[in-house]
Write a protein that binds this DNA or RNA. Structure first.
Lengths: 335, 335
DNA sequence: CGGGTGATTGCAACCGGTTGCAAGGGCCGC
DNA sequence: GCGGCCCTTGCAACCGGTTGCAATCACCCG
């Protein structure tokens, strides 16, 4: 059916090695042979079978891309950037949607069966052990949007979540909010735990501020909406730090549905600065996570590990910044 | 490095064929041999190399999934559902992000090199010829969210865009709007052209209604926002049919930013019924595209074609329905 | 013109599996 | 106890490539 190396070799009147070499960068082929082969190949419409090649070269250019959150629109940006970045380097993303099953073994086995060159885990909620399972299996892996630590067991690229929590706390404090809350992500997500810790630690310096945390079921609109409904029922606080922009938007909707205004009645500060935060109907004050940089670094890192697997794992922490928009009241004396 | 068939065979004291057969459904192996092999395999942590196997079986379980719009949050739902649906059937999605280059040859060659079993093109904007290139190359292909037609050259699963355009027109007419507009997608997208035609044809029955079409740069928030800005500048119409929910949301934001209320000053009806349309801050009246059904049917179809490639291509048209929310004024006499 | 050099080439083994075929083995009935 | 049948099993060829090695070739120099 498909045209093979042998077909080309026959047509060009050379050995299969010659053909193979024509398609292998840096192999020794004379100009004349190359011409004959290329002519035959293009007449036949030949292109080498990457999978067969991978058997001997031990390179598939396949990269497993694992994600577990398809409810958060930010992940479309994540996919867009990852797929583009990988493609630009000639790599192919093999997607694993982890929404259904989360045992590491399944994913490890599956990606092993496909001989992926490496794996990128793009999740801030998956446990560290999940990611480590790949390294244990000898598959190069990078944890993107993960939780950096000292002496990490796998490569991690992410942000200082505790620092970000503190940043949110400072921001709320500076605006004079006294009764504040943290609408956190799921309690099992390390990112949430760190943000909560940073938030609480910073607020400990501000004795007049009283804070409370409520965990959401997930990083999703529905979870944010439900959490804010519960808050409203219990009597809402003055302002909330939300563990993710999408939670903010859920909360924002719940507030508006309840006839409360933002930032008039309640202030909100989100996290991520996804594209929707900029939308006029949302206009969310938030803490920006440098997504593009994280993704670019993750891809660069996996490429580097694939090329030289014996590198010790590193943690890379990228800086976040406050993006002020319209969901918090202005700084006192600011107009 | 990795453990192979041969390692297992040696350890189990059997031939490689025996091992291969234990891992092949329906092959003839005695209970005793199978036990020995399974024991050895699990001790060694063996799992067969799918790529090597594919060389002889001619099946990779790889399905190319091509998309060209990562600006529209609806596509996260599309990815979620496609990846899950494929995984459920033991298939692996190989993503191609077409945002950068759109020559069919590149994608065809690339997917051919990876011996994908089939390809799903998930786009309502890519030209038909793009999809047909796969069939020409002998790769099973399904055009999902495409434009069904009589005697299609490739399998297509989609909706009746003209009918949907008409539905939008009827809806606006019934609510007594007189000066209406269509904020269309890109002029090159067949989906847009069909919707525009249906919209215009239906309005032709309503002589008192005056309509106009404005094409957007793409199915994105930014495009919708910009288009509505231009409309406002030119003096906005009473209501708009938007070629996509995301365009509606862009338009909605532009209207609110300009101090206009929806549906008080301007009415909006969208298209797709993506999840965000349900959000409180959006609450968009829209025409629902049966995404889940389209995706499920697309996957079922590609599986069927892969199993039996000689089927003539079919077009499948699924029904849409009006979802009434809060961005159009009520029907006259409706309260 | 012979020997030496480096570039080019083909052979054959190999990558990790599958599978047609024929031989071997167990079990049955007679 | 024997022949026959069917289930198991291993051999070896093959899937579509790559690559070490040795042979060949062209060319240069003395």
């Amino acid at each position: 059916m498909a045209v093979t190396l042998k077909d080309v070799a026959e047509r060009a009147g050379v050995s299969t090695s010659a053909v193979s070499r024509t398609f292998t960068e840096g192999a020794s082929v004379s100009h004349k042979t190359r011409e004959k082969v290329e002519k035959a190949a293009s007449e036949l419409g030949y292109s080498p079978n990457v999978l067969a090649r991978s058997l001997t070269t031990r390179r598939t250019s396949l990269i497993g891309l694992i994600a577990d959150n398809f409810q958060n629109p930010m992940f479309l940006e994540v996919f867009d950037q990852f797929t583009r970045s990988l493609q630009r380097r000639g790599l192919r993303p093999l997607i694993v949607n982890l929404s259904e099953a989360t045992e590491p073994e399944t994913s490890v086995t599956m990606l092993q069966q496909y001989s992926v060159d490496g794996v990128i885990v793009a999740s801030s909620t998956l446990p560290r052990t999940f990611v480590e399972a790949f390294r244990t299996a000898g598959i190069p892996v990078v944890h993107s949007v993960g939780r950096p630590s000292r002496a990490p067991k796998v490569d991690v690229i992410g942000i200082d979540n505790a620092r970000c929590g503190a940043m949110a706390a400072e921001t709320l404090a500076a605006r004079g909010y006294r009764r504040v809350g943290f609408l956190a992500g799921p309690q099992t997500a390390t990112s949430t735990v760190d943000r909560a810790r940073g938030f609480a630690n910073e607020l400990a310096h501000h004795h007049q501020i009283e804070a409370e945390t409520r965990f959401c079921d997930g990083y999703s609109y529905a979870a944010g909406y439900a959490a804010m409904r519960a808050e409203i029922k219990a009597g809402p606080r003055e302002a909330y730090f939300c563990g993710d922009d999408i939670i903010s938007i859920g909360a924002l909707s719940a507030l508006r549905d309840a006839g409360l205004s933002v930032p008039g009645d309640v202030g909100l500060i989100g996290f991520n600065d996804m594209e929707m935060a900029r939308w006029g109907v949302v206009d969310l004050t938030t803490i920006r996570q440098p997504l593009t940089e994280i993704i670019e670094a993750s891809v660069a890192r996996i490429v580097s590990i694939v090329a030289d697997p014996d590198q010790p794992p590193e943690a890379m922490t990228l800086p976040c910044e406050l993006i002020e928009r319209g969901t918090l009241r202005p700084l006192p004396g600011d107009g």
